[in-house]
Each structure stands twice: as structure tokens, then as C-alpha cells.
Design a protein around this nucleic acid. Structure first.
Lengths: 235, 235
DNA sequence: TCAAAAGTGTTGGGGGTACACCCATGC
DNA sequence: GCATGGGTGTACCCCCAACACTTTTGA
């Protein structure tokens, strides 16, 4: 039969998932990486990864790993990237990596058992050579993030609840890889009417935040309503 | 170890791939579907699919299936969509479907052994309930196509070498799901300077083609050059 | 007092959208 | 002759890009 030329499926494959975790500390967009302790990649950095049991849901497995790392369940955004086949060959057979990416607010959690796994945040633009084919995955994730940032207000999921326009602009500039004029950037964002002016000024200096600058939050409810009515966020 | 909590990968999974094949006949964008002859989906339509051997490359498997169907190797565009996990459960175990999509020029090939497999082109907007989770895959493929059409000149890969502006407009309208003003559409396309006016008028009536209307072709070489110099096709 | 970021308006040009009529061809 | 699609120009508006100086705060 043309559609299924092999008589029987070949049940010799294992699944893994890697998570590309993007975090933002106010001035720097970063990717979470672990350090390998095993040959042949001893000492090299790689994406947090795990095997998926044969009967586990793909997305659920990715979410479980996320929870293990951060202690909470619902990242601002999590999505499958795609399946990567050119992974390292396990002696036991073929392993397919179904990679995901997620966005986290770095302000939302505290590192817990990361040290023992040698995990660290690496700036977006300085990701070194990684183990396995993880550079390819990170590259793909970056492209996906760019597309999403342009067409959906996902950027806000990376920021703390109260943020300054400076932080927001930093984020957009790093994610999209170009600079924007401050005045034009503000006009553009205000035009969406999705920013709530909190009538509050920053009283300390978080990363990328200037003491005394105006704080804003993102009007998620309004965005939901507008979306239903056909509004399309385009940056 | 946090990164790989299961000691060993679980080699009990099989891979399959489904192809979402988009074709265009000049007036209608279509998807290629086969008819199932087996329970529990007997009579239902589904995407052309095959199992992937455990040590086969994902993309290569998709290309092989493409060649089986069309007799030539290089579709205008072929890309992985993503892995779909909620596929039917084979009695032997878990099957993961790594779906792909491809664009074909319907003018480039002749149906061969399709009859015996009950394969047929179904209009883009009239895809019925499909077997397995294939509706989800088709839906995902449509979104991907929309994005690609907007940001790359992939539409031309669906058209015959010589096409009319009417055909091109049809294609864009169906793919993006909206209508365009004829004059504005032409202005926009001419502005790209990527259309070659063949100084030739259609002498018959292909689908969606009006006898006597001007024929154009796409200047692929010029596009390649412009792309290298940073040009970004945006429709 | 110096450095760094916040905050603030105007102008010009380009691109998008809206809009209507005549012509060529097939049936 | 009638229906269908081909082909053509103008006007307006909105959005984007370019552009510079003053103020606040921390060090």
C-alpha cells in the first residue's frame, strides 16, 4: 500500500525533548544551559533535556521538565519547535529529539537545585558551541521567537508584572536584533492601548531599570477581548 | 540527573510521516488526500503517510514519499511541520507522526498509480473530517503556508512557469483567506521587480487563465541576488 | 559634576487602501 | 449581446522613520 509501504511500524525509536528556555532580566535576554559531565561532551554546555517515556504526551513531558526546573507549571509561553533527528546516536538505537521552547519571567522564581547540575543563564547572543545538535535547536528557537514577538505580545511574558518602557525596548531590540528610536517605539506601543500606566515610579534599580522611571503593566484582559474581535497584534 | 531523569531511553516508539501536499491548478488551492480502506476509518480521507524506519532521516523519508507520489525529487518547497503525538495508537505501541508539507506545481506531473489508492485533490477550504488527527495537521499546515506566503515568494512554486496576474492573485487570496483590490495587487507585485513580463499572451484557457491575458514568470535568479543583499520579500 | 537613562513633537515621504470604467474574449 | 475577467490612475490617510534637547538620578 502506497500510503504505508512498510507493513509494520518499526518500534525501535526513543524520544527525548530539549527545552530552549528564554529568560529576561530587564536588560539581557538569556538561554538556560546545563554543563555536561559525561563523555564525549564532558564540560560542554547543552540544553536541559530528558527522555520521554513511550506512552507520554509530548507537550506534557516538556511541561513536567519545566516544572522540575522552576517549580511552577505555567510558563508564559510554551510551544513545540519541531522534531530533530540528527541527535547523538545512543548505543541502544535511534533517538528523536522533539524540542520545545518556553518563556519565563526571571523575577518569578529562585534557582534551587541548579548548582548541582551546573546550570546557568547565557546571554542570547553569546551562546557557545553546544553538545549534540543543540546549536541548531537554539538557532531554530531564536527564529521562532522573532516571529512570535513580531506578531503576538509574547514579550510581556518575559517581563516582570511592572516594567519600564526602557526594559521593554531592550527586550524587543535583543529579540529582533535591531535598535529602535525611543520616541517612535513609545508611540507604537501606546497606540496599541494595551499598556496600563501604573502612575508609579520605580523606586529601586532592577536590571535595566532606572530609578524614577514610569512603571507599566500589560493589559492582558483587554488584549483577550480585542483578539476575539479580530485584533491582530503586530509589532 | 535532572537533565536526563530516566536512566535509559525508552526504545518502544515508532515514527511515521504524513505529507500535506498543496497544489494549485490556476484557480483553486488543493490538498492531496487518500481514502482509507481499513477499519476503523474505512472510507475516510487521510493524508498520504508512511512509517519511517528507525534509522532513516526524517526529511529524507518525506522526500522519498514525495518521489513515490510524483516521480520527481524536488518539490518547490518542503519543510517539516512538527511532531504530532496524538496519533492513533497502533496495537504494537506508540507512533509519533513527524508531519511535513510540500508545494507542487500541478502542471508538472501526471497522476500515475493514484487511482488504486483512491487519491484525490480536495479544495483547500473544503477539507472534510479526516481520519486520525489529520485535521489538526492540515490546520497547522495552513497556518504555516500563510506565514510563508507572506514573507517569502513561495507562491510562485505553486504556479506554472508562465502565469497570469489573475492566477497569482487567486492564489494569494485563497492562501491568505482574503480578497485584494486588483490594481493595488498589481502595483504591489510590480514594485518588487521580480516579475518578468514575457511579452506573450495566453493563447488558451488554462484553469483560472483568461485567453489573451499577459503572461509573466518569476525572476528567481534576481530574487536570489537580492536576497543575498538583504532583500526581504514581504507581501 | 559627570554619566546614564527618561522623557518629549514635528515633519516628510512612502505605502496602503479605496474607488469606476472601458476593453477583449468566449459562449 | 452578455458575462467574465483584463487592464488602467488618482487621491487620501496613516504609519513609519528621522531627528535633538532637557531633566532626573546615581555615582
Amino acid at each position: 500500500m502506497l500510503q504505508y509501504p512498510q507493513e509494520e511500524p518499526d518500534f525501535g525509536v526513543a524520544l527525548s525533548t530539549s527545552l530552549v528556555l528564554f529568560g529576561f532580566d530587564g536588560s539581557d535576554l538569556q538561554v538556560l544551559l546545563a554543563k555536561s559531565k559525561r563523555a564525549p561532551y564532558e564540560g560542554a554546555l547543552f540544553l536541559p533535556s530528558r527522555y520521554i517515556a513511550a506512552d507520554d504526551d509530548l507537550m506534557l513531558s516538556a511541561r513536567k521538565m519545566f516544572k522540575q526546573l522552576f517549580g511552577y507549571e505555567d510558563p508564559a509561553m510554551i510551544e513545540q519547535l519541531q522534531a530533530f533527528g540528527k541527535v547523538f546516536r545512543h548505543p541502544g538505537g535511534r533517538v528523536i529529539n522533539v524540542a520545545h521552547y518556553a518563556l519565563v519571567r526571571k523575577s518569578d522564581f529562585q534557582a534551587s537545585n541548579w548548582d548541582e547540575n551546573d546550570m546557568q543563564w547565557i546571554p542570547f547572543s553569546e551562546v557557545p558551541d553546544l553538545a549534540f545538535d543543540h546549536n541548531e535547536i537554539v538557532q531554530y528557537a531564536k527564529e521562532r521567537l522573532k516571529r512570535r514577538v513580531k506578531r503576538r505580545p509574547v514579550g510581556f511574558g518575559l517581563l516582570p508584572d511592572k516594567f519600564t518602557l526602557g526594559q521593554l525596548q531592550n527586550l524587543y531590540e535583543i529579540a529582533l536584533g535591531k535598535t529602535f528610536d525611543k520616541r517612535n517605539f513609545r508611540k507604537k506601543l501606546f497606540k496599541t492601548t494595551l499598556l496600563i500606566d501604573l502612575d508609579q515610579k520605580a523606586d529601586g534599580r532592577a536590571a535595566g531599570q532606572h530609578k524614577g522611571s514610569q512603571l507599566f503593566s500589560f493589559n492582558k484582559e483587554k488584549y483577550q477581548k480585542m483578539k476575539i474581535q479580530g485584533y491582530d497584534f503586530v509589532f
